[in-house]
Amino acid sequence: MIKIKHSEIVHLADLAQIKINKKEIQKLSLQLSKIVDYVSELNDVDTKNAVPTNQTTGLTNVTNDDLTSISLKQEDAVGQSKNIYQGFFKVPITIKNKII
């Protein structure tokens, strides 16, 4: 049975910027271990000759011409934020790639 350690859960939460408490770490460790254990059944499938599918459309080379169109007005662009300052989005100072 695959076991995802508490330390891994903490690391994942950090990578995903999700805050979790001790209780949640415990719960998630159990739940995720169960799920990952289940999906590991895929190891039974022979995929030697399989090419990975990441899109089902079969489309290629879908691009747009180098033409511009109108952008949002500033008030619409920033209007949904609770923290703006002179047209900028405002956040507390960032240190080490994380917002305090």
Binding site: L42, V45, T47, A50, V51, P52, T53
Partner: peptide
């Protein structure tokens, strides 16, 4: 692996 099984 999942992408490959998807192809299968």
């Amino acid at each position: 692996k999942a992408m490959k099984v998807r192809s299968v």
